[in-house]
């Protein structure tokens, strides 16, 4: 995907394989910011089903073998984006090259959204409008009917989303290339301090300002659905807060009451089900999807199966997580059960 000379012809081949004609591709350029996937942007004109379309599009593809930070499936991501796009502010997925026969690597073509990265937007415009916008984005994601989502999307086998996530914490602690007693402590602590349950719903699993844009209307746009599952939607709120500790500011902290009120209004959750203490519980629980992928990448590197600076760099950042999780369990023990 980095070969600027070849890529217009490859994109043309993908479009023609999907029944498009009169295809013209130009302005192909590599994008930064897609930390787990290769990203590029280009202009295209093509005719499909008798209608001619011109626009700017994004190509999102797998890195070369052995360099992937996390291992995810482009077909599932493509299906998820198409399923959630009617409900959520997100650029739709248009075409898929699952095998990489046209693009040279597994890739999907997505509509381009003329929007700005969230953190620079906050620097220029302030944060005051975003707690409500974030509640509306999270609420929209978390109220998508499960039956509208791809059947292949992972979900808890017995409906116990918390139990499933806690099991992942245990498995990550037990299966890594070395023992991880902090992970084991967190797994046991989470199991001993479960909050009131909510119905299963859509979980983005990398719900952070890094995967949001702000469009021209000032609305938040969700992107990057490669880690999505069905589970406890509050995992996204916890993950958002965890990520915001590492990459501030925390939009929720700008007005937590307003955020929670609007989020409860959209989702129908009660104050017992979503409150500041519960969000902090999920701050710990909700990171495990991404953390397991990062630790797995580091484990593969330790076994000599892969290797890149990005893998080592991102696994190293789990050190920050370990300190944050332990601090959160300390702070919440008293709040959730008055001791132990």
């Amino acid at each position: 995907m980095d070969d600027l000379a070849q890529m217009p012809a490859r994109v043309t081949a993908l479009l023609e394989a999907n029944g498009c004609s009169n295809v013209a591709v130009d302005g192909y350029e590599v994008m930064t910011g897609g930390y787990s996937r290769l990203m590029a942007k280009f202009n295209a004109t093509f005719t499909q089903d008798g209608a001619t379309e011109s626009g700017t599009y994004v190509l999102r593809g797998d890195p070369p073998e052995g360099q992937a930070l996390i291992d995810t499936d482009r077909t599932q991501e493509f299906d998820v984006i198409q399923a959630v796009a009617p409900y959520v502010n997100t650029p739709n997925a248009r075409f898929l090259d699952a095998s990489g026969e046209h693009i040279g690597t597994g890739a999907l073509m997505i509509d381009f959204t003329p929007a700005e990265s969230t953190l620079p937007w906050i620097e220029a415009n302030g944060i005051s409008t975003l707690p409500i916008k974030l509640a509306e984005l999270a609420g929209a994601l978390h109220t998508i009917p499960i039956e509208a989502l791809p059947a292949a999307l992972p979900q808890p086998a017995d409906g116990d989303a918390l139990g499933d996530q806690i099991a992942v914490w245990h498995a990550t602690a037990d299966d890594h290339v070395e023992a991880l007693p902090i992970f084991k402590y967190v797994a046991c602590w989470l199991d001993a301090h479960r909050p009131a349950p909510v119905p299963l719903g859509f979980v983005h699993h990398d719900f952070s300002t890094a995967n949001m844009l702000v469009d021209r209307q000032g609305d938040l746009v969700a992107i990057d659905f490669e880690l999505a599952t069905i589970g406890d939607p509050r995992e996204d709120l916890g993950y958002f807060k965890a990520y915001s500790q590492a990459a501030p500011p925390d939009i929720i902290d700008a007005d937590p009451d307003a955020f929670l009120a609007r989020y409860r209004e959209i989702t129908g959750y009660t104050e017992d089900q979503v409150n500041p203490a519960v969000m902090t519980y999920f701050l710990v629980l909700g990171v495990i999807g991404v953390v397991t992928q990062l630790m797995g990448g580091g484990g593969a590197m330790a076994r000599g199966e892969s290797g890149s600076t990005n893998i080592a760099y991102n696994m190293d950042n789990c050190l920050f997580g370990q300190a944050a999780w332990m601090a959160a369990t300390d702070a919440l023990t008293a709040a959730l059960d008055g001791g132990s």
Binding site: Y35, L119, A246, A247, Y313, L319, F320, A323
Partner: peptide
């Protein structure tokens, strides 16, 4: 000890 290894966290490579 881990925090001493990590130093000040300044994420690069994410949007």
């Amino acid at each position: 000890n881990e925090q001493e290894v990590l130093g000040a966290l300044e994420l690069v490579g994410r949007g």
